[in-house]
């Protein structure tokens, strides 16, 4: 049950955030995304930007740190649809209630795609991925944050409640499936 609660909590945090984004979309234009790094390479023919060294991305919804970030630059007027954060990836985001979620991975791939009227917006974490909030920690071979639908799913998931971490219960960590 603990894993389910954590899953719901994580999911609701994401859902709240997604709703907040949707609400914001109908009002003022979203705040810009800012990327800072030590260095960067731009291939203007391939529309590719590679940021290197102490990369920090600040977005209205989250803050991301990594060693290297690859941005596939879309044509003018189109939204960003493919970003890869590589090596020592750390992502922090908060929902509208201030609940923060902290994610770690070796690789995070953001994809945005509208297909047959359906929006797919995902962040796929691989390479020892871990997602943690105030209630617990989710690990797995791969964790997918479905931003469009407000869901977190994991391959071969493992859930650990904060209570276990803090030693307030003797129950063994729960393993999914």
């Amino acid at each position: 049950m603990l894993f389910l609660l954590l899953f719901i909590a994580l999911g609701s945090a994401v859902q709240a955030q997604t709703n907040a984004v949707k609400a914001a979309a109908g009002k003022a234009p979203p705040a810009p995304t800012e990327i800072n790094s030590d260095a960067a390479d731009f291939d203007l023919n391939a529309r590719l930007a590679v940021y290197r060294g102490h990369v920090v991305v600040v977005d209205p919804q989250m803050k991301l740190k990594c060693d290297q970030l690859v941005v596939f630059i879309p044509p003018s007027g189109e939204r960003l649809n493919h970003i890869e954060a590589q090596t020592n990836v750390v992502i922090d985001f908060a929902d509208s209630h201030g609940q923060t979620t902290h994610a770690l991975a070796d690789l995070a791939v953001y994809r945005y795609l509208v297909q047959n009227g359906a929006t797919n917006e995902t962040v796929t974490l691989t390479g020892k991925p871990q997602v943690e909030n105030s209630q617990g920690t989710l690990t797995g071979d791969q964790i997918v944050w479905d931003r469009a639908n407000g869901r977190l799913t994991a391959t071969n998931p493992y859930m650990k409640s904060k209570q276990n971490i803090q030693g307030t219960t003797n129950a063994a960590p729960l393993k999914l499936f």
């Binding site: 234009p29 810009p32 990327i35 800072n36 390479d41 930007a49 189109e78």
Partner: peptide, 16 residues
């Protein structure tokens, strides 16, 4: 191709 070697700052205001 363009390489910027120090203190790179990018601001993106594309639709999200």
């Amino acid at each position: 191709s363009l390489t910027i070697s120090n203190r790179v700052r990018t601001v993106i205001e594309m639709p999200k």
